[in-house]
Write a protein that binds this DNA or RNA. Sequence first.
DNA 1: GCGACAG
DNA 2: ATCTTGTCGC
Length: 235
Amino acid sequence: MNIHYHDLTLSEAKAMQENLRENIQSEPLNKPIHTIAGADISLDLYSETIYAGIVILRYADLQPLAYSLVKSTNTFPYVPGFLAFREVPALVQALAQIPIAPDVIMVDGHGIAHPRRMGIATHFGTLTNTATLGCAKKILFGKWPEPEAIKGSYTLIKDKEEIIGYAMRSKNNVKPIFISPGNQMCLQDSLNITVHCLRNHRLPEPTRKAHEFVNRFRTGELEEGYHELPNWELF
DNA sequence: GCGACAG
DNA sequence: ATCTTGTCGC
């Protein structure tokens, strides 16, 4: 599965989103979660190179178990509402070299909290047939009231009367994070999973670790490919 | 027409 | 997203 959204026009990309939208599965995730992965990408300024990373963690204690890193290239520009066309191809490659797929994947960006319900998490999930959710640092679409300043409090993100996600205070006195289901799960699932993954940082562990690993990859500290962490690192 | 606008 | 120094708060 080698995707390339290279020469797509925005109107073609939009048509593709309307199409993929029909594949969204929003029923509750009914299987137990043993592993969860975080997906993120990193860039060099003014470069077409894209570094993608997926880190798999044990759901019970959020310990990193393995990671997949890929260096790719893409000329599709960043356009709000079309982020997937820039980052998904590399993420698909990173997922492809993982021997045992994680039960759930948390993506850095939105799920259905998108004008056409096709944020990067939803796009990635429907394309690869995986369970995904989006966790973004900034809002893209929808109306939301400011949640209380205490960790754990949240409000609803709405498009008219429809609930499309949550704005949550993941830690005291920090800006909220924006959560929404991507694929193969419901709104409540995305909220529960995110809460489970919170530690003492604004970002939940899967996304936070993915960001850390992919940056270490970009700066040359880690090598491309699939790697399992040594047991002695897991205690 | 004007402002908003994930990474 | 990435580039940056100091600074404020828990």
